[in-house]
């Protein structure tokens, strides 16, 4: 799988960082309800600018220099994003390893492997 190829590592790390910012931003502004919507919007805008720059840089490099297909970069970004939300959900006990959720995890692994392979 291209994601684990060490030659792509510096740009994959950027992709992972941008997914992390996206994830932290989403979870952060949902959980910090003591801030007004206006304040949250301003903080989200700053985070959004940082995210867009990182994603743009890693995307351009992976597509133009390494010839990774556009769709593959996009799917990878969202796979990393979902995995991060999943880890957070285990922490908050939204994912409790119920049989249905375990089935979902197995299906997630198989489909993510074939989607990114």
């Amino acid at each position: 799988m291209w994601l684990f190829d060490l030659s792509y590592l510096p740009f994959n790390l950027l992709l992972i960082t941008s997914a992390f910012i996206f994830c932290v931003g989403l979870l952060g502004h949902l959980n910090m309800k003591f801030f007004s919507v206006k304040t949250t919007q301003i903080v989200a805008a700053i985070g959004g600018a940082a995210f867009a720059l990182l994603y743009f840089f890693s995307f351009i490099t992976l597509v133009a220099t390494y010839f990774v297909p556009v769709s593959l970069v996009h799917y990878t970004f969202f796979t990393i994003f979902i995995v991060m939300i999943f880890i957070y959900s285990i922490y908050t006990k939204m994912v409790t390893f119920h049989p249905v959720q375990i089935l979902g995890m197995i299906l997630f692994g198989i489909s993510a492997y074939f989607l990114l392979a």
Binding site: H29, L30, Q41, I42, G47, G48, A49, A52, L53
Partner: peptide
């Protein structure tokens, strides 16, 4: 790119909340 990112995240925040 920075302006697009900032503007879009500014817009979507109330919907998420």
């Amino acid at each position: 790119i920075a302006v697009i990112g900032a503007a879009m995240f500014y817009t979507v925040t109330p919907a998420n909340r």
